[in-house]
Computed example of a mutant assay.
Amino acid sequence: MTEAPRFPPLLRGVAAGSGEDPFEKACAMAALGCDGGTLVYSLMADRLRAALVFAPEVPLEDAMAMVPVCGVGFQNALGALAPPEVAVQLTWDGGIRVNGAGCGFLQARASRSEARAVPEWLVVGIEISLMQTETDPGANPDVTALHDEGCADMGPNYLLEGWARHTLVWINRWGDEGNASLHDQWMGLLVGVGEPIERAGVRGVFLGVDEKFGMLIRDNETTHLVPLSSLAGEPT
């Protein structure tokens, strides 16, 4: 039987029930007024899913820094547990890549979608593939799982605990230092910078991100900004 994960004192773990989506459950709990720091999780044989509830005190355009926070937190956690040859990269829109292949994703939802409004709550969810269920895992080289990348002995509870700890470290660091350190860390993990891209109806070259982690796309005439807050889906 898998040992129940342990979280730092500022986080409260809630196990999702059988068949429940932790992200949807966290959003429902947030809408009902649960405390920030509630972490809903599901540990399965083939995947790890978790969602962290935030109670922002800043506008959504600033609160969305929690998406990079959670991404860098995962990279730090896996880096501490996995063999040194395992490399983690992130995509601007929440994709998580391990050794160059897709292995999971981050997603976000807020109570309000206006960039300059302070949302009552923000939820950031993470899903990681632990084991591929296809009969021929090598059939799609662009998709992988941690077990295929040398992490077969890694318990999902330890990975979840590590993600929670490292994410909390970055939350505190962001609160003390602002975006600068987080920006540097995230930029170092982003894939696709300098490459052609099409996003939000804009086609050009992905130049990088601005000080609030918005995507900068350069076409033949100008540089366009796609704010990170555009990734926060509204509640259904």
Rank of each mutant, 00 (worst) to 15 (best):
C70M: 12
A139I: 06
A4S: 12
A16D: 02
D219H: 05
W121K: 02
F23M: 07
K212V: 08
L52W: 14
A26R: 06
D184E: 15
N220E: 09
N157C: 06
V58K: 11
A50T: 12
H183S: 07
P141L: 01
P141K: 01
P83M: 10
D210L: 05
I197V: 15
L225W: 13
D35N: 12
A108E: 01
G178K: 07
I171H: 00
G162W: 10
C103I: 08
G150I: 03
P5F: 01
E195S: 13
L78D: 06
E134R: 04
T236L: 15
V123C: 02
D62N: 02
A145L: 01
M44D: 10
V69P: 08
N157G: 06
T144R: 00
V53A: 12
N172I: 12
A65K: 10
V67K: 05
G33T: 02
G19W: 13
K212P: 02
A232F: 07
R109L: 00
C34V: 06
E57M: 14
G201M: 11
C103E: 08
M187S: 00
N220G: 02
V86F: 06
L228S: 05
A65L: 11
R173K: 03
M215T: 09
S129E: 04
N157K: 04
R199A: 14
L48Q: 11
L48E: 12
G233C: 13
L106Q: 00
N179S: 11
T91C: 11
R97N: 14
E195R: 11
L106P: 01
S181E: 06
L43D: 02
A152N: 00
E3D: 03
H224T: 08
G37K: 08
A164V: 04
P196C: 08
A117K: 11
E177S: 11
L130K: 05
E85P: 15
R47N: 14
A200S: 13
V72H: 05
T135R: 05
A50V: 09
Q107A: 12
G37P: 06
E161P: 11
G33Y: 02
P156W: 02
T135E: 08
A115F: 04
V14D: 01
E134T: 06
A200Y: 11
P9F: 15
P137G: 02
L130V: 06
R116F: 00
A55C: 12
M187W: 01
P22Y: 08
Y158K: 12
G79Q: 07
M1T: 13
P83D: 14
V209Y: 05
D153F: 09
G204V: 07
T2L: 01
M64Y: 08
P8N: 07
D35V: 10
A232I: 09
S111D: 06
L10Y: 00
I217L: 03
F23K: 07
G201F: 12
A16T: 06
P141I: 02
A16W: 05
L106D: 01
D210V: 05
L189Q: 14
A4F: 08
L189S: 13
D148L: 14
V98S: 10
A15F: 01
N140Q: 09
F206R: 07
A4Q: 12
A16S: 08
V209G: 04
G100N: 05
D153S: 13
C34Y: 01
G175Y: 04
V14M: 03
N172W: 15
A28T: 11
P56I: 12
A30L: 12
V72G: 09
R116L: 00
P227L: 14
D46R: 14
W174A: 00
D210C: 04
N140G: 03
P9E: 15
